[in-house]
Structure formats: structure tokens, C-alpha cells
Design a protein around this nucleic acid. Structure first.
Lengths: 226, 226
DNA sequence: CGTAATTTTGAGGTACTTCAACTTCAGTGG
DNA sequence: CCACTGAAGTTGAAGTACCTCAAAATTACG
């Protein structure tokens, strides 16, 4: 699942782009609804404008010449993409699910830009720690906690701490984010389910059943039986 | 300010800290010469001022509660440390080798700060790609290329492309940077030496003998025989 | 020269990957 | 409604890259 896109350098296949591809730039404030797997901009091409995610989810990723893909970040509502580089994009951005973007003026206030850059840096450093020093179950648990924070809603369940969110990334996306393979991600999720820490319904609706235990797994305090 | 305190997680050996620890604050422009393994500031403590590395090398690192350490970046001359966070340090900073720091005013121009943050972000994202998707030999080769760029001098050798630099990080530091173990780093270096791509003299003087081949290994184009 | 720390090297173990088969699910058309 | 198809996910078995453990070799230093 390393290459979902064609060669990034060359004009890419635009999977499932609606025939009448909406022009983002023409949207004044809140743009059109982009279908899943829409490429917003591509690594290596001339620098794209900046967007704020209004609703949905964006994956930013870099790809090696041989096709290995690494997702740099999953970006949820309220956060920005497309800032912080020079004359060309340092990563690609793609929707994972129906997503609404909002064009952000190139001239953010220095404060806003600083804030956004700092947050991106902090998240990138967290990912470095995760990739460099955490085991597969720890990575998956950490990812779920992050996704719950970004995409979680108050949860319809009354259960204390139970939080439900829409899982935008596929197993392949999670693998490319967490430096694992699809199979390893799947196995970890299965074990988290069997341990009663999470539940997944309809394939993409995740409920965190035991937040403390999940955090324990993420921190390496709790093992995770087979 | 210099917080030469004990490591919060575990009581660390503080090798070779000079008895009369110099106070950075008293230095107006270019500070004193800090000995190796001097802790400049610590993760989790109140935010430290910002410094520019004048000469030597700084490692910035995060540590998990169980002691696993991940080096976030190795910082060479000209680059900044200590910026980009809120009220407390998000990582520790430590000298690897005799290092001279220069206090940087808290009020960088927005342009300077933006520039520095962007560079840190770019480097962090490169490290994410390295940790998530590169093999051990690729990681070590990539690291050497980065270190040659940061610490390399014109090389006394006439050889085209040959570049020599002082290897500040130990095998352990490299391992904590590259998400590997000491032994794996050592084995990769040995293989690079045997392949004639690099040479290491006196334990810490590295010469890149074949820049192209080394880049090939880093990119995964060239394998690396046993 | 002697001791300790670091690095190297080897042998064996394991967490994760790879390969392959099976299952589930969404969409499509009969 | 239900077979048919393809994509996504799961599960199992086997392989391997890297880790762990241990010891030897090298280097650093008093």
C-alpha cells in the first residue's frame, strides 16, 4: 500500500476526481465539497496556496523515488495545510473522505503563521518519537488517541470517557503514517478490539471504550495480549 | 539559562562536566566553551532562552517515561535551538563535544523566526521519512550526508568530492537519532567502510570518499554487501 | 601500563514484514 | 432480491531485518 498515487514527479492520476472538478481558487470562503482521494497539491510542484480544513480530513505525505510513502500528518478541522515552505511544495496533500477546504490568505498575520508552524513542528516531533522509539501497538494506540482528539465528537454513548470518531484513514493510510504495514495495523486494531479498549463499527466508526487503558498501551505501560 | 541539573527521568552520569560550570548569561555575545555532555536545557522545565550554535554540536532530544530516547535533531554551527514552543521546553538540549553557544535575543525578527521554524519543520519531516520508511543502511548513509553538510570542511584531500568532518555523535547518539541500536549503527558504518564509501580515523574523523555512491545507498538505489 | 568506556563482532531471538489465502463489504447488473 | 465483481480488511504461515545478549577488540585516560 505504499503507492496509491502514480509517480509524484509526473502528472498524477487523480483518482475519483469528479468529472467537473471544482476549482478551489474560485471559492471565496468555504470551498466545495471535495470527494475522497482528491489531490489538493503535489510535492515538488510550484507552491500551492494555503487552506484551512473546514470539515473532513487531509493527509500530507512525502514519497520516495521508489514509491515508498510516508504520511507526514493527518489534518482535521480547523488546522492549516500548505504553509511553511519555499517556492515548491515539500509534500503532497490529499483528501481522505469528503472534505471541505477554505482558502486562507497568503498573508496570515505573523502570529497566526507562527502559531501554525509551531504546532506543525510539535506534531512532527511527536511523530518522530513515535516512529523512532515506539512499538507497533504503541503506535496504533497513539494514533487512535490523536484521531479521537482531532475528529472525536462528544459520543452518543453515556459511558464515561467513551468517544466516537469517524476513521478517515484506511489501514493503508495508517500504515504509511505509522511506519508499519497494513497487516500489522490490522492485527494491532484487532487486538485492541479483543482487549475491549476500542470498538469499530461499519469499518470506519471507532469508539474508544477505555481511554485510560488505551493511553497505557500508547505509553507502553500496558502490554497487549495476543 | 543553563540548567545543568540531573536528568529528571534517571540519574545520569555527567561525564566531564567541568567543576566550575560557566554561566552563559554572563556572556554577552559569544559564550564560553561548553564541554561535551553539558545539558543546556531540559524537556519539561520552564522555557529556556534561545541560542545560536557558534561552534560544536547540540543534540535535541525527547525521552519517554521509561527512558527510551529519541534525538530530534543534531544542530551544527549557525543554527538555532530553543525556539518554537510555549511555556516549557518540549525537548532537552545537550552538547556533544566542546561547543560554543551565543545567546539570541528573544525578539528575533518575525522573518528570522519564521525562517528558523520552517527549517526545523523541514528537517523534522525529513527525519519522519527516514524513520518511517528507510532501512538501516539508508538511515546511516543519510545521516552521514547530513552531518557532512553541517560539519564538513573543504577536506584537505584533493580528491573530488571527498569531504571530511568531525563526528560529534557517538554510536549511541546516532542510534537514538536514527531509531536503531548501537550495534546496528556500528555494523552499517563498518559495511560502508568496507565498501570504500567512507573512512573513519581516530574514531571521530569521517571522510566521505564516494559521495555519489553514498547518496545512492541513502536513496536505496545501491544495496550494501555484507 | 592498567582500568574503564566505547566500539566491534558474533550468535541467537523476535517483532514486524512478506506472501498468500480467505473474508467482508460496496457497488452493479441480471 | 441476489449473484457477480473488485477493493479493503483479516488471518495464517514463513521469512528477514533488526534487536538482544554476550564477548572480544579497540580506544581513552589516569
Amino acid at each position: 500500500m505504499l503507492q496509491m498515487l502514480a509517480n509524484p514527479a509526473a502528472p498524477p492520476a487523480f483518482p475519483r476526481v469528479s468529472p467537473t472538478a471544482p476549482d478551489l481558487r474560485s471559492a471565496s470562503l468555504s470551498g466545495p465539497l471535495l470527494p475522497p482521494r482528491t489531490v489538493v497539491f503535489l510535492e515538488g510542484l510550484a507552491r500551492s496556496p494555503q487552506y484551512r480544513v473546514v470539515d473532513g480530513c487531509i493527509a500530507t505525505a512525502q514519497t520516495l523515488s521508489d514509491g515508498r510513502r510516508q504520511i507526514i500528518d493527518l489534518v482535521g478541522p480547523g488546522r492549516l495545510i500548505g504553509l511553511g515552505f519555499g517556492d515548491q511544495n515539500r509534500y503532497s496533500a490529499e483528501t481522505l473522505g469528503f472534505t471541505r477546504l477554505e482558502l486562507v490568505p497568503d498573508s496570515l498575520t505573523p502570529g497566526e503563521r507562527d502559531q501554525a508552524l509551531s504546532e506543525m513542528l510539535a506534531r512532527s516531533q511527536s511523530l518522530v518519537m513515535l516512529l523512532g522509539r515506539k512499538t507497533a501497538p504503541e503506535r496504533v494506540a497513539s494514533a487512535l488517541i490523536d484521531l479521537a482528539l482531532q475528529f472525536g465528537r462528544p459520543a452518543r454513548d453515556r459511558k464515561r470517557g467513551a468517544e466516537t470518531f469517524h476513521l478517515y484513514p484506511t489501514r493503508g493510510d495508517l500504515a504509511d503514517w505509522l511506519g508499519l504495514t497494513i497487516e500489522t495495523v490490522s492485527r494491532c486494531l484487532t487486538r485492541l478490539k479483543k482487549a475491549g479498549l476500542i470498538d469499530i463499527r461499519h469499518g470506519d466508526l471507532v469508539t474508544v471504550l477505555d481511554q485510560r487503558e488505551l493511553a497505557g498501551v500508547a505509553a507502553g505501560d500496558r502490554a497487549l495480549s495476543n
